[in-house]
């Protein structure tokens, strides 16, 4: 078990981006909050055989697992929630909201690695190398996962919809 000081230092340094990551994937402030607590609790409870060399990638990986189980739980309960606090400013507010909802549904239906790779690369600003350190595999695999996700989204939102 790592020292509490070290975990607090990680929370200071990476807490904000991990929270934003959970918030983006889960689309709900309360779930993101719970997810952040859960991520660091897993860190606290983790018994380490070796020191953690890449805490940022490790935290992202744990947060990804936390988010995945949260999404799975929502699915099994058939619970569809609105997006209570993601405010989209657009002239055609309602249509925009529907579209955002539709996009989220497609992203949530992607395999977990594709969803994570896409969000990590595009919205968390990680390089393919960094994504690979989070999800395992090579930078090549990370890139393939992002492209797979993009292909499915392109199919769901064709160009003429613009």
């Amino acid at each position: 078990m790592g020292s509490a000081d070290q975990i607090e230092a990680w929370a200071d340094k990476y807490g904000k981006e991990i929270h934003a990551y959970l918030w983006r994937i889960l689309g709900d402030a309360q779930d993101a909050d719970d997810g952040l607590q859960e991520t660091f609790l897993r860190v606290l409870r983790h018994r380490r055989a070796a020191p953690i060399l890449e805490p940022r990638a490790w935290l992202y990986a744990i947060a990804g697992n936390v988010a995945r189980s949260q999404l799975r739980r929502r699915r099994t309960e058939g619970e569809r929630r609105a997006l209570p606090d993601i405010d989209v400013i657009a002239p055609d507010g309602v249509a925009e909201r529907d579209r955002v909802d539709a996009v989220r549904r497609v992203v949530e239906s992607l395999p977990s690695k594709q969803r994570q790779a896409l969000v990590l690369r595009r919205y968390q600003g990680l390089t393919y190398d960094e994504v690979a350190r989070v999800l395992g595999g090579s930078a090549q695999t990370a890139r393939a996962n992002v492209y797979q996700a993009v292909l499915k989204l392109k199919k769901a939102f064709p160009e003429e919809a613009r």
Binding site: R24, G27, I86, V88, A90, E96, R99, V100, A102, V103, R104, V107, V119, R122, Y123, V150, L153, K154, A156, F157, P158, E159, E160, A161, R162
Partner: peptide
């Protein structure tokens, strides 16, 4: 288009 839609959400 798909990327604009995605950005609006994420």
């Amino acid at each position: 288009a798909f990327a604009l839609a995605l950005d609006a959400a994420y």
